[in-house]
Design a protein around this nucleic acid. Structure first.
Lengths: 213, 213
DNA sequence: TTTTGTGAACGTGTTCACAGCG
DNA sequence: CGCTGTGAACACGTTCACAAAA
């Protein structure tokens, strides 16, 4: 069980979902080939990924679905619950609050902040919007989500870091600075559109290998 | 001007934004080092990226901001406008419709679809929601955005492909199948949360190199 | 025979280090 | 001297191919 690479972690999320699906189909075992088919990757990749944290398969038979699922859940840290603070109660923030899927996976959005007076005090999906000034000196959370306009993003980032948040999911189109002990992921929709724009601008669009998503 | 890799394309989007910023600061030239600092990457990386599509810099001086910006705009295909159809008028779809930034970059959301009768006919930010059945046999667009529940995603995907869309941005947490001539990008927020969860579960959280966003 | 687990080969992207030019 | 452009070295992730086990 050596180091697990970034791309492998993302594929683990996929495997986890596929395992849920095939479990519902009544199977007990699944082969690397089956997992690979549903992922659009090679079976060798699947085996390499799974072997990087232990030997769970049985040669000639495949992987036991339940065991593998439990194992991946533990590795991804989904065997516990995480508290999340969302900053920015605009459209994206509201969409996150409305989506019940996160809660099902163990992510509890327990606080919502916004800088606009008009939004503070509003109740969105059961959570009362608080002023951003309250981020400082607050209870602290495991993760923070930045769903603010880009001009506010770095300030919010600093406030969240000060509140000892250890993971940040950023939707603002800007590279944020965080200390090395904070994990940062950025979802930049404008950049995604620009990637598509680039692909469609190429001489023979689509003949190129599709980017990994 | 040889082939441009995926990671390079994404960095070009970043450079493009940084160039806008420094242009506003009144500069005429910018060094690879300055671009690198704002990106959190190495100056060598910047030079490699920029040299992959031509020599625009002046040794000893740096890169001419205006020229470089124009050049990147052309490469990314931002020197024209793109038509976009959004499928799914729920929270995410609505958030996309409300965001004016896409239009500023050349992406015009010209059609909105939803399968729910209650939403069809509604006007959201100036666009009337149409039934998904109208995707087939419609006018056609450059790109499609899938912002539907996961169970509908593959069907919508097929419909969009049939409507000769050449690029798809998918927000449903599922790997979609598209023909090789269609570019696909997936934004999977659950997976992003799971990546954070994984990072926070590691023995010495944060001591690991931060993932590229 | 089927399918895993894995060392080796391969391919791709990043960093180094320095020649080249202003 | 300052900074770009770039071959070479390096690091990392993917694929191959096959021995080992059920």
């Amino acid at each position: 069980m050596s180091r697990i690479s970034g791309p492998t972690v993302r594929r683990l999320s996929h495997y986890y979902r596929v395992l849920q699906e095939v479990a519902l189909e009544g199977r007990r075992m699944v082969s690397s080939q089956m997992l690979a088919d549903r992922e659009g990757i090679t079976s060798a990749q699947v085996r390499k990924d799974l072997s990087s944290f232990g030997s769970f398969g049985r040669r000639g038979l495949g992987y036991p679905i339940d065991h593998l699922r439990t194992e991946i859940r533990t590795i991804l840290g989904l065997d516990r619950r995480w508290t999340v603070a969302v900053v920015g109660a605009g459209h994206i923030g509201s969409a996150l609050l409305a989506y019940t899927g996160f809660e099902q996976q163990g992510f509890d959005i327990v606080a919502v902040f916004d800088s606009e007076d008009s939004r503070v005090g509003q109740v969105i999906d059961g959570r009362t919007v608080r002023p951003v000034s309250e981020i400082a000196g607050s209870e602290g959370w495991d993760m923070g989500v930045i769903a603010t306009p880009v001009r506010a993003a770095q300030d919010v980032d600093d406030a969240l870091v000060a509140a000892v948040v250890r993971g940040i999911l950023n939707f603002a189109p800007r590279k944020l600075k965080v200390p090395e002990w904070v994990a940062l992921r950025t979802v930049d929709m404008t950049m995604e559109f620009e990637s598509l724009s680039f692909a469609l601008s190429q001489p023979r669009p689509g003949k190129r290998r599709r980017e990994r998503t």
